[in-house]
Design a protein around this nucleic acid. Sequence first.
RNA 1: GGGCGAAUAGCUCAGUUGGUUCAGAGCGCCUGCCUUACAAGCAGGAAGUCGGGGGUUCGAAUCCCUCUUCGCCCACCA
Length: 913
Amino acid sequence: MATTQLASRYDPSAIETDIYNRWRDAGVLTADAHSDATPYVIVIPPPNVTAVLHMGHGLNNTIQDVLIRFERMRGREALWLPGTDHAGIATQNVVERLVADELGKRRQDLGREQFVERIWTFVHETGNTILKQLEAIGASCDWDRTRFTLDDEYSRAVLKVFVDLYHDGLIYRGHRVIHWCPRCLTALSDEEAEFRERDDHLFHIRYPVVTSAGERRGGAISPGGGEPPNRRLVDSIVVATTRPETMFGDVALVFHPDDERYRDLRGQTIRIPLTDVEIPIEVSPRVEREFGSGMLKVTPAHDPNDFEIAGELEGDYEMPVVIDAEGRMGHEPRVPEELRGLDRYEARERAVAMLEQEELLAKKEPYRHAVRHCYRCHTVVEPRLSDQWFVRMKPLATPALAAYRDGQLTFVPERWGAVYENWLTEIRDWNISRQLWWGHRIPAWYCDAPSCGHITVALDPPAACERCGGSVRQDEDVLDTWFSSWLWPFATMGWPNATDDLAKFYPGHTLVTAAEIIFFWVARMVMAGFYFMGERPFSTVYIHGTVRDTLHRKMSKSLGNGIDPLEVVSRYGADALRFTVVAGAPVGTDVILDPNDLETTFAPGRNFANKVWNVGRFILSNLDGPVVAPDRWDPAHFELADRWILSRVQRVIVDTTEALERFRLNDAANAIYHFLWDDLADWYVEQVKPRLYGDARGGEVARAILRNVFETALRLLHPIMPFITEELWQYLPQAREPLLAKAAWPRPKAPLVDDEAEDRFGRVQALVAAVRSVRAEYNVPPGTEIAAVVQPSSTDALEAFNAEQRTIERLAKLKHLTMDGAGEGAGAHQVLPDGSAVFVPLGNAIDVQKECARLRTETARLDGQLRGVRQKLQNEQFVNRAPADVVQREREKEQSWREQRETLTAKLHALGC
RNA sequence: GGGCGAAUAGCUCAGUUGGUUCAGAGCGCCUGCCUUACAAGCAGGAAGUCGGGGGUUCGAAUCCCUCUUCGCCCACCA
């Protein structure tokens, strides 16, 4: 193929789709369960089936793809297993809105069957959107193995897990206060009910005191404590609450058993304000004496804590539910008529107004506190007494904890391990039933016979009650979405069948995700992995940061601060996107991107791609002549620059490999970036040009090295920028592997590491930079060739300058570089880091004052450095205690700076400063 | 209430085991260049008392304490 035809600007959109299809058609993406290669497995965190690609996915999946491509090139049987999650509440909400918009109907109007049918249509139409979008960023997933948590086979696994856990005694049906979303009309787990700060009020309400005979009780109620709330009124007790509307569900007031203020009140009766309901005063150690008046109202049906307290009180208490499923006041006789049917917040206002009127409101103060909200719709959760299914978590947590503690499971960065450990240690039972229609329906059947009441739990619907033979009806509820996600690492591979995939690809290796779902998903996968597979599902959990805007706010649809990855791909290319997020995502930190300035954010990545493109174009178009294979290279023909670049290559191979192994993707990106741009493009390619255009043998060597170095660079860059590297690979003559995606990862060749060459070429670079600096300072036009005289500080320096004299002259645009002594006449002076001195004769153009000033500045800087290093060397403590090599290095510095200082002094004299 | 993280150039951030080759990169800014791979480029340059204070050490951006400011997670004071 003719590289000369390649455009000078890299156009990603012209090639990306083709390249991707080529990978797919060549089977690059498909893992082989029967290969001999060691497996490497990542299971994707399955995006919600309704999701559209956002930057968080962009980051998450780019990281996974970099790791997968890296290990694939290293020869492992790499499987990246993709798929989607049915996302119960989220998806149901989306389609509910859709139905409302389309038909103006609620899901209840359609009925369960029809509504679920509608969701399936939606899923079939748009469910693979996000997976298709992942292709655009180059994700090399094994699409043949795409899974969905509601696939038949997968669903079967979910139900089996429920049945097994039930029969193992780890799933039970419980009656307790759970988190309820009055908007989604379902129960939520603790994790799904997230705390958010809210500005509310704390209401101090007077509960009228009633004697046991129904008479008012007189006299002081508290001998001491100096607490004002209850002192003034002897006929009422003040209670602080944020939720006055729940008082109709109160069953008692309680105070702390040691609270002297109320000691005499125990056993007395008070009346719920605005009602005739009388309730007792009791004690509970759970009461915080310092809070409010120290008297707590107990509302067992609408507060989990109160539920516990009521359970601990002597005697049986009813637990009246006064707020219905939709968050409205109930119609119980306990609820005042004027409040019945009102929304809980309206009811709160009305109740408070009524209390005021009755002079039963002692105080109302602003109050900021954390309240649980539905994680899907952000409605304030209503604690609610109901029957739900729970998983007993403690036994499952034990091996998951052990795995972390004995190092079988590690976190990157490590600190997240503590979060994981803490959660597992404090773990509580998991409410897994959801009052939704979209999801895995719970495989439990209730006997219709009231006298029997048996529950049959089975994988397949029973014909009749297994105890009494009577008719049964299935539980209406479905399972929490996460109850299917936690099986992802093995249910995707065909569990419970003993499949080849399970044999080959379980357990997996790396899990890449954000910290937010450590509890929801990561910890639970580990538990399920141990319980059902007997092994951890992965060995490393790599936790990456969150994508935020420049104000450090999380990118979100509602804030409108998101970035559309597809727009970035079309404007800057997938590789630019990938490079930007990888280079900007050091381990453990958030990724800050500017949604208002895509240019600033992504241009550097695009520019780098363009650089790769152009250096590639140049190199490829110069490979026409004969090329010597590496195994026939004769080092005798190498120039200094050749040895230098080959040594640099070995280092960048080591650096990149180590960085990727340690999940330091940003280090890998930077290492290869600087190698390609600085070492290869700016120096080696420039150095090599005369040989390419000139002498035959030199050209042959140069071409061989150029080809080899560039080929290695493409391999190293491929995991991060797969498209452009694959495209350029296609033009590489005689590539051993037809596709870079399946090519081998480079191994460093130790004999090519050449410290001397690196040292010497470094001196050459410094000399060129010094002359360039002089040119710039004196505005010498590029066309004007000047001469320079260098005074090498050592034989090493002399040999280096001699070896690359032609390079120095070319790159510094020198007519001639003289190698000996000091120059004559007026000119500019520079001293190199190694002590070598350069003189550039500039005749009249020179400004002696300026030169003197510059040399004095230099001298002063060196004096400062010398002072520091000498102080150190004179310090016995330092010389004695610091490691020998550190001291040695300081001595070398001192010598080098002293030499530079001497050279400068001589210059100053020569100029007559 | 408990825990964690961050603060380095105008901006976004590197800086792993303390050692003036670690005070850096990219962007932005200033100067000069359309030098036949690349103006999405080349060359040169200015710019930071490493959040404040204290300590450990021969030596601190790096370790310890403390304060300030942001951010996150967990949490049954209603």
